[in-house]
């Protein structure tokens, strides 16, 4: 029987990812949370919805950086990384939307409300889904890499006003803006903070791990194609 070994030297961060995600799930459901009117126990969603959204922003920004590096260096590896980071960002974004939607159902009473932040999130997903479709509709690999990188940078920079300027122009129901009950990230309860920050790192590392696996599979596949 093959012995199970774990290469701690290279894979320590995967261990941390597992520990942090477990900590988020277990701690997130068990710790004492502050009583806030209306929100109540649902404040725990912060460890899932908010932190997934944070790590989505981290991954999408990393994807942007790889796109910029691809344009300046033209290395295929950077394109592959930009693609996979964007895909993982989309997955976290969809999970963030889903958890947010469930939260909204029990706090606001509707799955979706017409709110600047929610619509911004939906448009953000549309932009990155368009990125996927753009990638799929260009045959030539080098051309695909370059055009996709250009769109990635272009889309990201128009996303910025969408996510950070528009919500400021309108009143928002969403926690963290206006005077509504909820968790403002700047005055978090210390207990919440104890799980919130680790959860961001946990989700991001888990995402990185998945990205690493997918990149390896793709690289092996392209090597196989070269051989055959």
């Amino acid at each position: 029987m093959a012995k199970l070994t774990f290469d701690l030297k290279n894979n320590w961060w995967k261990l941390i990812a597992v520990i942090l995600v477990l900590y988020t799930v277990i701690g997130g459901f068990l710790i004492k949370v502050p009583r806030i009117a209306i929100v109540q126990e649902s404040v725990r969603n912060q460890f899932f919805h908010v932190s997934m959204w944070f790590s989505m922003m981290i991954l999408l920004t990393t994807s942007l950086i790889f796109s910029i590096r691809y344009l300046s260096k033209s290395k295929t590896k950077f394109d592959l990384l930009a693609e996979e980071f964007a895909y993982m960002g989309i997955i976290l974004g969809i999970l963030g939307l889903a958890t947010g939607s469930i939260w909204a159902r029990f706090t606001w009473g509707a799955w979706w409300v017409n709110d600047a932040k929610l619509n911004g999130a939906a448009i953000c997903m549309l932009i990155y889904l368009a990125y996927v479709i753009l990638r799929n509709s260009i045959e030539d690999e080098i051309q695909r890499a370059r055009i996709a990188a250009v769109y990635n940078i272009f889309a990201w920079s128009t996303l910025l006003p969408l996510l950070y300027i528009l919500p400021r122009l309108t009143d928002s129901l969403h926690p963290g803006s206006g005077g509504n009950p909820g968790f403002n990230i700047y005055d978090l309860d210390n207990n919440l903070r104890l799980v919130f920050y680790p959860s961001i790192i946990g989700w991001t590392l888990l995402g990185l791990w998945i990205i690493q696996l997918r990149v390896r599979v793709k690289e092996l596949k392209s090597k196989l194609e070269d051989i055959s």
Partner: peptide, 18 residues
């Protein structure tokens, strides 16, 4: 890209929304 007319709309609408 291929099917550029559809793509034009898909790419532009979300970017132009803000």
């Amino acid at each position: 890209a291929a099917n550029s007319t559809t793509l034009m709309a898909i790419l532009s609408f979300p970017v132009i929304l803000p």
